[in-house]
Amino acid sequence: MNSTAISVKNLCLSINGQSILENINLNVKSNELISVIGPNGSGKTTLLRAILGFIKIDSGSIEILGEQNIKGRLHVGYIPQFIKRDSDFPLTVRDIMLSGKYSGYFRKYSKEDIHSADKYIEEFSLSRLKNKRIHELSGGEMQRVLIARALVRNPKILLMDEPTSSVDKKSQDEFFMLLSRLRERMAIILVTHDLGAVSTYIERIICLNHKINYDGPTAEGLTKLDETYKGSINIINHSHHGDK
């Protein structure tokens, strides 16, 4: 049960000659729920994207479920902070949910796929929105759709980048309760600024500022945080700014 979900060894990454990640070593077990925190521009989003193989790394290795990340990423659900989408794209919420059931070339969606997508639409209280186009959704509703779409795929690992940045306090609490349930069947890495919620729900945190400054229990990490970052993180910060 406690096998390794993600293994990052000696990862170095630079963009346009500027070092973004320096000698990152990270091991995440299946069923672990961890949070990556750090100031804006510290490389949090870049780390997630490197794990997924979306960005070329300079050196080091990244494995997902024991396979090279390019292969292993098929088992990962990723919820980006933003998607580069055209808000006029003529897709409904139901179309987007169904796309989560994509299973390969020449394979049509089966009745089970449609049933499963509908089940998640209901579970995530999206029934009212299912025939709406994406430009009709609020930021929080779109975020819920993206989380539900990622889960429709039954991922073994979930990577989330500031998933609560556009939702209200009540929805945030519900969201963290959901994560606590989900960790029973998957590893979760959560990038967030919201240290208030992290201190309540997350047991292990990674403090990142180009390199890992701390990796361990949340309670201990939060006491060292202020010294490490010299106040560059707001302790309960619902900032909407993303990483570079």
């Binding site: 997924l52 659900g77 990723y78 055209d86 796309s99 779409r149 795929r153």
Partner: peptide, 11 residues
């Protein structure tokens, strides 16, 4: 066309 990164994760 809609979400290239999601499409990549779908294989």
């Amino acid at each position: 066309s809609f979400d290239e990164e999601f499409a990549i994760l779908c294989g």
